[in-house]
Design a protein around this nucleic acid. Structure first.
Lengths: 197, 197, 197, 197
DNA sequence: TATGAATGAGCCTTCATTCAT
DNA sequence: CATGAATGAAGGCTCATTCAT
């Protein structure tokens, strides 16, 4: 039904990101997005099934690019621990590069209704799969412990990065997010404990 | 103006948790909460300023008890690493004990509007402070590394636990959440890396 | 049912005048009047049938005193034109003496619902009767023209005074209302026309 | 935001007059007005900012036409006393022509809240200005006395006409309002006093 | 394809009144 | 007589979606 291509399709998605970032999820009415995209309200329904579809599509498009960029970069590296560092870097760097997107993904889109949430979670799986791959590789390479539960490690990696970005956005991005790459990586690899002498 | 005590006050909060867990945030109308609490709609406004106040109060009450219970338990232990394990345990155990509360806190309340969010974040700070205390203690005791950034560690601990519970709720609680205590604690303490022989 | 006497009865009426003058008709809730009168909400219903009854009683009490005071004063005078001047004077003087009452009667009570209006109109009749008496006397005395329609003259007298007070209240009582007595009386007696030489 | 023109705009205003006249101000819900105008509730908000705006617009539209029609008619006449008679005639005639409008303007709209009142008073000023013009002209022409306070005269003229129409509406229009033109005019011009022989 | 005017379902909150104490 | 906690009905407004042009 909805033609999910074309210049206007992209325009609408960009407009939605901008409007949500600027006015917040609850003030991002269809008509406001339409105005920002310089189309009529009804035109949005030629490209999307409904408002939720706009939000899910937006997340999928952006998240798809996000994951792909990350994957391309980490696959240039050999060792799993280096890949992990690169994944952390890409996550924080990409978020810090796009102010609007960070606000939308960390704050605003979390207010959305169950339908949108379901779509978002679907899109997130691709990213979680990427994280899993790094963990599995690390085990294969003997770089990560065999007895690490990969599901737990995945939660730690994603949960920490997510919390880091949310916290950074909520604190009005007062510090350099990328500066957290090394401390986070260090913590993931070495844990909290003091090394035995 | 609002009398924030009494049996009805508690009833309304319990009713709100139940209704939100059962019907979702966007279907938790004041009248539905009132019916569940066996009071008239107007009675809610004798105890709360408005609907947002119900939600914020609910979170503060529950979160306050959550933090206090956790604090009481961990302070029985000496070592920071044991306290961390107890904190992880209490977090996961308390969430797994109360199905409704887990749904409300991990899924539904995140959809709330900025006013509610602000109140929630305020209440969360107390918990983050508790996590910080454990980290600082660990450094003092020489159990955790001095060079660990406590803000980063705090994000790791909270982010991981939060993600773990969310994931568990979203997967319809198919597994035992408390079984994650040891793997998570192990990961936090030892990190991913293989121990040198 | 309602016991329309006693100290509290008076207190409630005075409280109602004060609250309405201060907060406006639409912000004059029963509970606010009760608090001002230092009684419980329910107590009001021991002295009045309902809220409308408070307002009507209030108007009747005050208007009764208003009319009686006016009547007593004008009956001291012989000539109808002097009585008319005194009536104008009493109307404007009494209103200018009691700020709250002027606001209540000219602005706030006009916003009331039909039931209250009906009660007010009833109470007003006594005053209109007094005006009529002056007109009839004037005709008898040969001071006022016989061919003046008394109903029309009554409307002129009441309408003008009413408009004068309303206008004065709405302009924040910036001028001395009593200074209008002579001009108004003059206009009533002589009309607009230039006297023939 | 509100598009204050078009056929529907007029329809809604007419519907509002009808509904208010028929059911009273406090029973004139937006949905009732919408039904009467054969539009959806929401459509009203395409043409008006809110309910108060409907009422204020209604008054302004009607009052504007009222004043203009009166102005056009009186300006055909030379003498100020003739103009005054025409103004009285137009006031009473226009009111007696439109039963609903008379009820709305004399009874129902006076119950409105402060916001609406403010809008109404603004619109009334134009009419008071017209009355002033007649008074000034009369003085210039030597038809009215120079020492008549124009503000007082204005209050007499408006107050009397307003009271006459209100009284007529409240008495269920049992008599012919226009029959009051001559007596009122006579009273305004000649006053109450008996002419000296 | 594109438009944008029209639709109408849905909900938080107030406050006059009651009645058990 | 007096209290005041509890009741519950009622309505203005928003905004995603449609459809005639």
């Amino acid at each position: 039904m909805a033609k999910k291509t074309g210049e206007k399709y992209q325009n609408i998605i960009e407009a939605a990101v901008k409007v949500i970032a600027q006015h917040g999820y609850h003030q991002a009415q269809v008509s406001k997005i339409a105005r920002e995209a310089s189309v009529a309200d009804g035109t949005i329904y030629l490209y999307f099934d409904n408002k939720a579809d706009v939000l899910v599509s937006l997340f999928k498009e952006k998240m798809g690019a996000f994951v792909q960029a990350t994957r391309e970069r980490i696959e240039l590296l050999e060792r799993a621990d280096d890949r992990l560092r690169e994944l952390i870097y890409m996550h924080l760097w990409q978020m810090s590069q796009n102010r609007d997107w960070a606000i939308v993904t960390q704050i605003e889109l979390r207010q959305s209704d169950p339908v949108v949430r379901a779509g978002i979670n679907q899109a997130l799986k691709e990213y979680l799969k990427l994280i899993d791959e790094v963990i599995f590789l690390g085990k294969e390479q003997g770089v990560f412990r065999e007895n690490v539960e990969h599901r737990v490690a995945r939660k730690m990696i994603f949960g920490t990065l997510d919390e880091a970005v949310t916290s950074w956005v909520m604190n009005d991005r007062k510090y350099n997010l990328v500066s957290l790459v090394e401390p986070i990586h260090n913590l993931f690899i070495n844990g909290l404990k003091v090394e035995k002498q």
